[in-house]
Amino acid sequence: MIEVSGVSQVYGAGAARRTVLDGVEVTLSEHRIGVVGSNGSGKSTFARLLNGLVEPTRGTVTVDGLDTVREGRAVRQKVGFCFTDPDSQIVMPTVREDVAFGLRRKGLRGAAADPVVDDALARFGLSALADSPAHTLSGGEKQLLALCSVLITEPDVLVLDEPTTLLDLRNARRIGDVVASLPQQVLLVTHQLDLLAGFDRVLVFDEGRLVHDDAPAGAVDHYRRLMA
């Protein structure tokens, strides 16, 4: 259960002052939640609030009662995060090392991590690439690796910030299928509205405000009208 109460997010000061989020108030408990909005609507900042990557200027965000500012560490163990650009989130030189990186926080290192890593790579169809340098992977493989590396830590919630924006249709579908099969609570920020089929709830952001909050059909309608 994620509770966002009275959150505003402001960057800069004086003339450069920009309000990115304004008075957002929402409780998230559904299994599948989508977030849509135009570029600059604040949806990406909203996603980053949920694991404490961004700390709210005003208001509070809690995950299962844990405050994202005061207990950021514990929150980030509960909330996994997948970014748009896989190149910025793959942090280790080879596929195997990158997947193993997330296990450090569980105290699993070196050979002890190997069986867990092998298992995860097999689930994502990455076994053949285990010892490949990360930079030789295709865009789709990189995003799968990123997802694999996040999920190996078994977070309770997964937040994805436009994970398919840089991918072709086939790879986007592949990521969509993986996400659909997850047991975790998922919050998906996206421009690809077809990924939201079967979701429980969709939030629409516009100019820093949460302007619509509905089942997918209604929310997507609202979003289309907003963009028209």
């Binding site: 989130q89 942090v91 450090r104």
Partner: peptide
């Protein structure tokens, strides 16, 4: 810019644990 994103990713993936 890439470094800023990488810093975020390191934090999200538990560098501070």
């Amino acid at each position: 810019r890439q470094a800023t994103a990488l810093g975020d990713a390191l934090l999200a993936r538990g560098l501070d644990d």
